[in-house]
Design a binder for these strands. Structure first.
Lengths: 244, 244
DNA sequence: ACAAAAATCTGGTATATACCAGTAATTTGC
DNA sequence: GCAAATTACTGGTATATACCAGATTTTTGT
């Protein structure tokens, strides 16, 4: 005779039941953002299951974006998503401030490289031309939420070298761009990128590519962003089709 | 002394090596879109590893979007991504045709429901008001790539009842909408939704929400789409900030 | 020829165990 | 008191095994 005193959801796999248990703790606020989840071994003990089963539960929670893991440190509750309006060219940092989210920018790399075939085509410059490559990390609450690598053709943007200020180096190109063609897709985060975001390699994230154009419609900058997908959502606006 | 005859990438976990092996087969075209990957047991045999290790490899391939699985049938190679331009209100199906992708629409549910709190707020109608709810599947090559559930307030859209044609029921609202506020986010696919897409529950996908407005700026339709994230990318355009 | 039954194959779940390499807390030696 | 060494703990990888239930294929009986 089955025990009806315990109200277990019927037909739900063990590890799913554990997921639901933890999910409710997160939703109730018993587990706050960035606080540690129980370890695999502790969770196994608590629920009387094997470590592998507990691990499957925690991996599922991660996959859902409810938590993130830091290798050999533990798993932690994800903070709430921030919204990124891709429709305006406004500074992302300023945008975040309006949402009362504190974002810090850290320039981690800045070098001059030569354009490969793809970049040359995108920016309509000759292959092998000089390109400024800059990589910035974007933090919120001491956690990296995404990074971007931008490639700017200096010839196409003469103001750039003059404004060698810290501000321009760390902040976005801002007012320089007029329009940008953007592509957003889901994809797994490769080890190099994962290290920058301090997340587990190969977990799913969001990749964004921008081709920034000046007032004349000429592309002068290519940006590639890698986001921790569970921490962001993108907003945009569709407008009625103009005549074909 | 280590064996240098076999060129294994150093320090790469076993299951990652298997992933790379299969990845190369997919990229080379030895494995075509929708063709079956080796089963967990067969892969384990081939590489001389345990089934669990082979399984981890296949799960990783799935997580990367290189393949999808159908429960108790097998795993299959994902087709190439299609691009969805969220910036225009044009008919998605027509959009796909321009990319030479054949998309079929299947209306699977159509009913009249009452507005809950959230819907009432979004469409600025009273709670409990009548709402038309319709769910459509979008197929390409006999595979479901996404589905949408739309909620239309009939009072706000008097033309709707008249146009009870098959076309309007299966195709998009099309020219009715003027603008739409769109949000795109990553998230795990819940069992109900997974069943519609014929994918494994809880795998990561893309959720899109649209608030469709008419020429006067009044919201009259709410759309929720669930996408198989590995099969799509979203394109949009950013435009220079207008004066604040 | 054809339908029903059986066997096989598939992915999904679950356990128990083992070892590794970093992280973090504790203990030790001075 | 404090730095260094030790220990405990963490997630990551890997194996071997077992059973389930649906999907598919093969065999069987008529």
């Amino acid at each position: 005779m089955p025990d009806s005193s315990q109200k277990t959801t019927p037909d739900l796999p063990l590890f799913r039941q554990i997921v639901e248990h933890i999910r409710s703790q997160i939703n109730d606020g018993r587990l706050n953002a960035h606080s540690a989840l129980p370890s695999e071994r502790a969770l196994a003990e608590d629920h009387g299951v094997s470590r592998m089963t507990a691990r499957r539960a925690l991996e599922a929670i991660e996959a859902e974006g409810l938590a993130y893991s830091e290798e050999r440190r533990g798993r932690f509750v994800s903070p709430r998503r921030l919204t990124y309006n891709v429709n305006s060219m406004s500074n992302f940092v300023a945008d975040a401030k309006q949402q009362n989210i504190d974002v810090e920018v850290e320039l981690i790399e800045s070098k001059e490289v030569t354009a490969d075939t793809r970049l040359a085509e995108l920016l309509t410059i000759v292959e092998g031309a000089s390109i400024i490559e800059r990589t910035r990390l974007f933090h919120s609450n001491d956690h990296t939420i995404f990074f971007e690598t931008e490639f700017i053709a200096p010839d196409l943007c003469p103001d750039l070298r003059k404004h060698g200020s810290d501000e321009l180096l760390t902040e976005r190109y801002g007012t320089l761009g007029h329009t940008a063609d953007i592509v957003v897709r889901m994809g797994s985060i490769k080890p190099t990128d994962a290290a920058r975001l301090n997340v587990t390699p190969w977990q799913v994230g969001i990749e964004q590519e921008q081709i920034v154009k000046d007032r004349s419609g000429k592309a002068f900058c290519f940006v590639r962003q890698i986001w921790r997908g569970e921490l962001v959502q993108f907003s945009t606006q569709a407008i009625e089709n103009r005549e074909s």
